[in-house]
């Protein structure tokens, strides 16, 4: 964990509720895809945890959904705004897991952390398929960015406006994609369906309401097959076999 001051260099809506924020500064605390940051916001007591979409030397990209006061405040931030941020929180995905054809499954605002993961896996010579699930065409974001990275991208929409009609599980079944490991982030019912339907091993990024975000308050603890774990510290990424549904 590092506490740093980062400057907003870009903050744009990708869809009516999804925003992309670029932050400049020392982001060396971020070391793995799937980690998150905690942002202090004026007028709010607790920091807000936001997953990391991408990180480069001196730059961080967050893609977030406006769901409450904190993210609403973020969406109104102008370029040049300085933010007090804790970086490098959480374990992140295991990008070195032995596999050849990883399947990455994202639902809605669970899509962003898969971006950096895709990049890292492709850099390791893996053949990456990304399945992205959205409600409808107007809510789709980042699909072309995953294609630019070189991933095979499959879209599912609940209303069938784009790609496969239905859930990501329908899209996976229909595509007949070959895979030997999966990584996922998205709503709990989606993660549960994936873990139950896919016979291969994998890992999922969970979400829980947090107090501190760095492991001291026990606010986000969950029961796992390996005992109590903190989503913010031992997680947010857990192996499929650890999660109790």
């Amino acid at each position: 964990m590092q506490r740093v001051v980062l400057t907003v260099t870009k903050n744009e809506a990708l869809t009516p509720l999804i925003y992309e924020m670029h932050l400049a500064g020392d982001v060396s605390g971020v070391t793995r895809a799937g980690q998150f940051v905690e942002i202090a916001l004026d007028g709010l007591y607790l920091r807000r945890p936001i997953s990391v979409c991408n990180y480069e030397e001196g730059e961080l990209t967050l893609v977030y959904k406006v769901v409450g006061k904190g993210t609403d405040l973020m969406s109104q931030m102008a370029e040049g705004t300085q933010l007090d941020v804790l970086t490098g929180l959480g374990n992140g995905f295991n990008i070195d897991h032995e596999c050849k054809k990883p399947l990455l499954v994202g639902g809605g605002v669970g899509v962003p952390p898969l971006y950096r993961l895709t990049r890292d896996l492709i850099a390791r010579g893996k053949e990456v398929t990304v399945v992205l699930g959205f409600n409808t065409e107007a809510e789709i974001f980042y699909a072309e960015k995953f294609e630019e990275l070189g991933a095979n991208v499959i879209i599912a929409t609940a209303d069938g406006s784009v790609g496969v009609k239905g859930f990501v599980t329908n899209a996976i079944a229909e595509s007949g994609v070959e895979t030997d490991y999966f990584y996922s982030c998205g709503p709990l019912p989606m993660l549960k369906a994936l873990c139950q339907n896919l016979e291969i091993d994998g890992e999922v990024s969970l979400e829980e309401r947090m107090g501190c975000g760095f492991g001291i308050c026990m606010g986000c603890s969950i029961q796992t097959t390996k005992g109590a774990k903190r989503v913010c510290k031992e997680g947010p990424v857990f192996k499929k076999e650890e999660v109790i549904w």
Binding site: Y45, L46, E208, G211, S221
Partner: peptide, 22 residues
Amino acid sequence: FGNPTPRIAECPSGLINSVGLQ
């Protein structure tokens, strides 16, 4: 293990916790 989640609620200038002595 303590209490079920959510265990945390934001409040003006504070928070509510219901960790339950984990």
